[in-house]
Design a protein around this nucleic acid. Structure first.
Length: 256
DNA sequence: CTGAAGCAC
DNA sequence: GTGCTTCAG
């Protein structure tokens, strides 16, 4: 019996895929447009087929994940959750999912699996651990989930948005697991859309814990997120345009 | 929707 | 290791 189990384990381990593959062949790269890419403080940018990220090896997670969400990508296909695996495109390998086991924290998606149900590959891709951060259970299932649902609503209403999101990474924070995955104290999300020649954007900042206050009360300027993260968002856009919408909060541009 | 955890194989 | 079921916010 023991021999059988060991043999079974070896067999399975040998054939365990280390990457997700597109069943339909080569999936297209549908990334966030160049104009919307933030700066990278780590220099390690990874482009997946349906999202782009900047990985921080020091903190064993992304400092940002950016993706475009189109109206026609919002489907309700039933998908089976795959296992979280290390991102083969991160040179140093992203964190092993076991760091999170019994840590008390969720493996919180940055690019939500719920936004990527239109294909099996797109869905599976969100389960690379480079797209995962330690999130408080009540935060993830609560106001963070509420914001993700709101982003899907805006996607339908405004015909597509761009999303940039992650935890705020810095020294001195708690960590979990053998690889010391940093537990962010804050999470941010920036949502932008085109409106003719204009860009409209809104930014949110949350503590990594349960919140019972409204989404609106968590709206901040993009400047504020830049101060906390050291990341330059929308650096590829003309300065005049960038300065204008990064320093102000205009709630009227977004229907809640 | 967002997830964890236990158990058989 | 995977597959399946059960459970919670």
């Amino acid at each position: 019996m023991v021999v059988c189990l060991v043999g079974f384990w070896l067999f399975e381990n040998f054939y365990t895929p280390d990457t997700y593959t597109a069943p339909e062949g080569v999936a297209p790269k549908v990334n966030i447009p160049f104009d919307f890419l933030p700066s990278s403080t780590t220099g390690e940018i990874v482009q997946h087929n349906y999202f782009t990220l900047s990985y921080s090896e020091k903190h064993e997670q992304a400092e940002w994940v950016a993706y475009q969400l189109d109206r026609n990508q919002l489907t309700y296909d039933d998908r089976t959750r795959p296992y979280f695996i290390e991102d083969p495109q991160v040179r140093t390998k992203s964190a092993d999912y076991k760091n999170y086991k019994r840590s008390g924290y969720d493996r919180g998606h940055l690019c939500p699996a719920g936004d990527r149900r239109f294909s099996e590959y797109a869905y599976n891709e969100t389960f690379y651990t480079s797209n995962i951060s330690p999130q408080n259970r009540e935060f993830n299932a609560g106001i963070w989930n509420e914001l993700e649902n709101t982003v899907r609503y805006w996607t339908k209403k405004y015909d597509g948005v761009y999303v940039i999101t992650a935890g705020v990474l810095s020294d001195g924070l708690d960590s979990i697991g053998d690889e010391d995955v940093t537990v962010p104290a804050y999470f941010y999300k920036i949502v932008a859309r085109r409106d003719g020649a204009e860009i409209k954007a809104i930014a949110f900042l949350f503590k990594n814990k349960e919140s019972k206050s409204s989404l609106k009360s968590h709206v901040v300027t993009i400047d504020k997120i830049e101060q906390k993260t050291g990341i330059d968002f929308f650096e590829k856009l003309p300065n005049a345009m960038e300065d204008k919408f990064e320093s102000t909060v205009i709630l009227e541009n977004w229907k809640f």
